[in-house]
Design a protein around this nucleic acid. Structure first.
Lengths: 347, 347
DNA sequence: CTGAAAGCGCTTACAG
DNA sequence: CTGAAAGCGCTTACAG
């Protein structure tokens, strides 16, 4: 497969015996070309299978129609669903995506990555990396802000920053209130790792609901795992010991909930009669867990597409430079899906 | 966020009172600049936070250091794991990814998509869309081949095409032979949709193993689902009726296997004593199914990174245009993970 | 209706 | 050691 030179506008011009700019006119459907010339040039374009260079064009137009996406942990469900939504929406809006995946969640030096993206003239950036520990502190240290609009996904509100997020706290509340309504009163919580903002929010929702119901929230009523099914299993065991009265458990994601179900089964604990379990995420398989899992469903695809819409709006506001774009906070509400794992017939 | 003009090489040149090409020399670490000038220019570059335009550079160098990735069904596990591997490897090799997701698996007109990619000067393309029905016929109709190297993932061998694939047929054989070794002899199969090449391969492996063992393979010994847990459940029910002697079941993916387990449980069929079940994919949760699932594990991340390595090799071969790059076929072997769902103590 | 000129942001020979 | 000129592939005024 030897190197093939690109077919350029010059090749087309030469072959159709006109100047470059006439070819350019034909390409861009300008009116001022004679019908005869137009036909001839199109013919040559097709014969040569000529594709105008988007690169050259973006240099002139100062527009690349490209969006940068920074993601991490693509092998997990959430991030890939989000990317799915981003890709769909970008496609629809006529933008192309430049994808960068962080090697881990805790990358320290963001600058080279941002530079790569900016050097390729992205018109905006979507930051689809979960907020963990202080992995967003760099935002403060940006010299004089970014040179392009940027949208952050699922994170703590910060002034001056556009954020699209799922309301995880509300989700945690939803799960817990459901359990209360079902008559459970010793409701434990198995959270995700607490350096994750999402994990903390869900935990907060759980706690708030219990306090609102006049119940106590004590240290030994909860523990945290690392999102994996394995950790869901081991942490559930720990919780069963530290909180023996526990009759219901709100778990921070469906995969850990699967681990919890696993442990309950091994120990002969009946779900939901002895222990109700509610998950978070709403992954399709959860409907086929044993028993089917009640869960809080969040639409990550919608999150992604909302982010793209918002970003494009910001970009266009920048072009009509009058209307300075106001940073926005969009929050998507998760929904409760009730299944067998939390609906015992209580007496 | 009003529009900000990019800082260009001219700005730097003006501010440091040298010509553009001296700035260029400094940027590219050329030797022939006086130390004093070099220092001054670097200072200005930093002050202005100047980022050279990769776009302009790629125009000159005729190299974009960009790879195109075409994917579909990112919301499913396989494609996103694959993309994960692709992203990691591309990053490591210093390439940036241009991502396009097809709206569905059966897109008819590939040309516009290919053109977008080519117009942005991608140096190579990875086709990470599963082969389904005739959704790859377009390869034949490419006028005079592609102008850049292209690698296809998981598909039927075709002359002149570079392919990186998992050996699904071998995987199916692995699962089936394991069941035979465990003493099962009425082994049914629940495949994925048969227009998927991968589904057909796994089915073929199952069939070959049975024939090799001198067993019959009849129509009513297998059925096909659509990869979803739901279809896994309904198709297992169907199979239990059509093939009542069945004592083991090889299922085309883990999610459908979860559906099979679900049905078995509902019907009081003991797994693995009455019915052994083996899945395919090796997703982490399968270790926590009820009972834990024996499965054939395939490393999609490795698939992705192998594809990137191969593609880059092809690209570089193109640059040293002597050594014409030979299309290759790389095949990755899946592995069997044995768990409780297939290891009854048989008498 | 069509072409010569200038320029997008950069680099590569070529002079001096 | 440094700058003027030409060019990557294209488009946009400006002439004619």
């Amino acid at each position: 497969m030897a190197i093939k030179r690109r077919v350029t506008i010059k090749d087309v011009a030469a072959r159709s015996e006109v100047s470059n700019q006439t070819v350019s006119r034909v390409l861009n459907n300008r009116p001022d070309v004679s019908e005869e010339t137009r036909q001839r040039v199109w013919q040559v374009i097709e014969d040569l299978n000529y594709q105008p260079s988007a690169i050259a064009r973006s240099l002139i137009h100062q527009r690349s129609l490209t969006l940068g996406v920074v993601t991490a942990g693509l092998k997990f469900l959430g991030p890939s669903q989000t990317l799915n939504g981003i890709a769909k929406q970008a496609e629809e809006a006529g933008y192309t995506l430049l994808l960068k995946e962080l090697p881990g969640f805790h990358t320290t030096d963001i600058q080279p990555l941002l530079n790569t993206l900016l050097s390729r003239h992205v018109e905006g950036i979507i930051w689809a990396v979960p907020e963990i520990g202080n992995n967003r502190d760099w935002i403060q240290h940006q010299p004089n802000g970014l040179s392009v609009p940027m949208i952050f996904l699922t994170m703590q509100t910060q002034p001056g920053i556009s954020i699209v997020t799922v309301d995880d706290c509300f989700g945690g509340r939803l799960a817990t209130e459901h359990l209360l309504n079902q008559g459970y009163s010793h409701i434990g919580h198995l959270s995700g790792p607490l350096d994750w903002w999402e994990a903390r929010q869900r935990q907060e929702g759980w706690q708030a609901a219990l306090l609102d119901a006049g119940l106590q929230v004590l240290e030994h009523h909860w523990t945290c795992g690392n999102w994996s099914t394995a950790s869901g299993a081991t942490e559930t065991e720990r919780l069963l010991e530290s909180y023996p009265e526990m009759d219901a458990l709100f778990v921070g994601n469906d995969q850990m909930a699967l681990g919890a179900l696993h442990v309950a089964r091994r120990k002969g604990i009946r779900v939901p009669d002895d222990l109700a379990i509610v998950g978070f995420d709403g992954i399709p398989e959860s409907a086929y867990y044993c028993p089917p899992l009640t869960t809080v469903s969040q639409n990550m695809g919608e999150l992604g597409s909302a982010a793209v819409k918002e970003l494009i709006q910001a970009i266009e506001a920048g072009h009509h430079d009058h209307a300075a774009y106001e940073p926005k906070l969009l929050s998507i509400r998760p929904e409760l899906i009730v299944r067998e794992s939390s609906t015992a017939v209580r007496v």
